[in-house]
Every structure is written in C-alpha cells, then in structure tokens.
Design a protein around this nucleic acid. Structure first.
Length: 287
DNA sequence: CCAAGGCCTGAATG
DNA sequence: ACATTCAGGCCTT
C-alpha cells in the first residue's frame, strides 16, 4: 500500500527542470533557486518544488497539474522504450504555453536549432517587447501580436530570423486581426484546429503539431521532426518507417494515424518523453 | 501525387 | 586562416 502510494505520488510530481529542458520552451533562465520564464505578457517563477508564482499574479496551469498522469503514463507506456523514458524523466510535463508566443517560437524553430532559436526569440523580445523588472531582474516580455504585425521586415530580420521574417509578421497579423482565434481553436478538435493553423505561413505539419500540443490542449498531437523520425526508426518496427527522404504531407498524416493507434489519445506525452530521452543520449543543448 | 532545390544562420569540420 | 559541410522545416517549382 505505501509502495503503491509513493509510486502514484511520483507520477503526479512535477519536474520543472525536466519540463523546461525538453525543447518545448526557449525563454527560460535559472536565477538562484528559481526558474524564470517568459510566457506571453507574463513572467513565471518556478520554485524547486514546482510551485508557480507570476509577475502579473495570473492563474496558470503551465505544467498541466490537472492531467491525470497515472492514467496518461499507463496509456502511453506500450513498450520497454517508453517505460524506460518515463521512468528516467519522471515529472516531465507537457506545458500549456501562451499560444501566440508558442506559434512564433515554432515558426522561428523551423530549419534551426535550439541555441539559435533561443537567441532569435530573445532578440525579438528586446526589440519589440516591454521591459519590466521582477525580483530585481530585468526581463523583456514577449511582444504583443500588434507590435510584431506592425514591425518592418528588416527589423525582424535583424533579430536573426532570416527568411522567416515575413512569416512571423504575417502570422502576427492573422492573430491580431482575429482571423486566427486561439480561444476558438482550443475548443475545436485536433483535426479542425490543425487544418486552420496550417494555413498560417511558415506553419507546416510539424510546427502546427507543436503549437497544438504545447498551447492548445491537443494531447494527440505528435510533432514529427527529424529526431522523432530517427527515434521511431531506431526503437520501433518497420511500421513507423519513412521510405522517402523527405516526409510528405500524406506520409505525415498516415504515420500520425498509426502513432495515435499505437500510443493512444495522449500520444503527445509519449513523444515528449522519447524526444527528451534521445536528445539527452546525444547530449544536445536545451537552452 | 512526389522529388528536389532554395531559403538563412551559426557551429562543426576539413 | 579560410572554405566547405551540416542541421533544421517550409515553400515553390
């Protein structure tokens, strides 16, 4: 009984460290005993125990505390690979981020790498975001959609985003003009929300799945980047293999369907544990 | 429907 | 020191 209880407590625990260092977020830093992170117009402060306070005192379930992790872990651990990953990175959570920041972050992420993404996003905040003080530290909030939509392409390019500048500006414009409405998308199902979000320039299957998983509550989203394709090839059978060099729209959809059939409705959690595991194996930088 | 090439930057490798 | 290669996802052809 005590063994069972302690096991369940472990499942429900939250590791801020594992969650922040898993490729979901970029604008986080550690200062003394706390992690500080930009989330839209707010700054979140996480203690070692996982307790969140915030600059604007807003309520947020950033680490999805309400998720029933015992149930989710039971559902996604279909094999030894996922079992090992879950055990090794206990407390890793999918985050529930500010959708606009999440969208821009993953447009910036395409064809790039984590240190570079972080640098570009910091530049964007300094250039277009509000400067605030919190706990005697200086922070720049993430810019509002309006501010980015009115930025010049050259000013955006100066942040190091290259050809993505026009995608970022147009995406911000779609959000500001409410042609993309995140609150609606949260209510839509996965397929509908994905279809809508893929109309944003610079957003393909992978970026869309990141936004759906990390900010719009779609836990069946399973972002398939080069790493995930490699992981599936390495640890799973022929069924998950891509035969061609580039992953086409059709293949992405077929593979995603197979994945959801296998891992179940919380497949996105399986993705996060597997990604974390393999990137750690290769000692890749997180922030 | 699919394949291939270009986009942009910084790090790694020769 | 300098040049080349690579990593990375989306869009256009």
């Amino acid at each position: 009984m005590t063994l069972l209880l302690s096991k369940m407590q472990n499942f429900n625990s939250i590791s801020a460290y594992n969650s922040i260092n898993s490729g979901q977020v970029f604008l986080w830093r550690k200062y003394e005993d706390y992690w500080y992170g930009i989330d839209g117009q707010d700054i979140l402060k996480i203690s070692n125990s996982g307790k969140i306070t915030s600059y604007k005192k807003k309520q947020t379930d950033f680490f999805r505390k309400k998720d029933n992790m015992s149930k989710i872990i039971k559902s996604i651990t279909k094999d030894q690979t996922t079992k090992n990953a879950v055990k090794r990175y206990l407390g890793l959570r999918i985050t529930q981020q500010d959708p606009f920041q999440c969208l821009i972050s993953f447009i910036v992420s395409s064809n790039s790498n984590i240190p570079k993404i972080k640098q570009s996003l910091e530049n964007i905040c300094v250039k277009f975001g509000d400067k605030v003080k919190f706990d005697n530290q200086e922070f720049f909030l993430f810019p509002k959609p309006q501010n980015i939509s009115q930025a010049s392409i050259v000013d955006l390019q100066d942040c190091g985003v290259g050809y993505r500048a026009k995608f970022i500006k147009e995406a911000a414009n779609l959000v500001w003009s409410k042609k993309i409405d995140f609150e609606n998308l949260k209510k839509s199902n996965y397929a509908e929300a994905k279809k809508t979000i893929c109309t944003i320039p610079g957003v393909g299957n992978k970026v869309a799945d990141c936004v759906l998983l990390f900010s719009l509550n779609k836990l069946e989203a399973f972002p398939l980047d080069r790493w995930m394709v490699r992981i599936l090839e390495k640890y799973y059978d022929e069924n998950f293999k891509i035969n061609t060099k580039t992953i086409t729209e059709k293949q992405y959809n077929i593979l995603h369907q197979k994945i959801v059939n296998y891992f179940g409705p919380f497949a996105g959690y399986a993705q996060q544990f597997l990604f974390k595991m393999e990137r750690e194996n290769y000692k890749k930088k997180w922030l």
